[in-house]
Design a protein around this nucleic acid. Structure first.
Length: 100
DNA sequence: GAGCTGACACGGC
DNA sequence: CGCCGTGCCAGCT
């Protein structure tokens, strides 16, 4: 099976757009919900086609933020009421669960 | 065509 | 808690 298709990209974008403000999700969760199986692809999609989606609500599996985004991402999250300390968010509190 | 890089995850140490 | 190596897929030298 081909790894990535146009439909997959749209699915990922839709999933991320479905995350409500004040909550966050992880790359792994999005990948799993979209049926990708590879969290890295989620990052790739956001890098290329994620300018118009709430990408700041997507964090790593341990709650940390990527180095080049931490500034902007932390700023946007705090604006939504998400506590960000030491480049990391508290997943247990803000994590958004996708329907299986 | 080979190799490196990256908005990642996970198991070891 | 942190650092490292490995697996993963796509894009660029």
């Amino acid at each position: 099976m081909p790894a990535l298709q146009e439909a997959d990209v749209e699915r990922v974008r839709a999933l991320i757009s479905a995350v409500p403000a004040g909550r966050v999700t992880t790359y792994g969760d999005v990948a799993r919900a979209a049926g990708l199986g590879n969290a890295r692809l989620v990052g790739w999609i956001l890098r290329t086609d994620g300018a118009d989606v709430p990408w700041h609500r997507v964090v790593r599996a341990d709650g940390t933020l990527a180095p080049h985004l931490v500034q902007e991402q932390a700023r946007r999250l705090r604006a939504e009421g998400v506590a960000v300390a030491a480049d990391r968010v508290r997943l247990p509190q803000h994590r958004h669960a996708f329907p299986a």
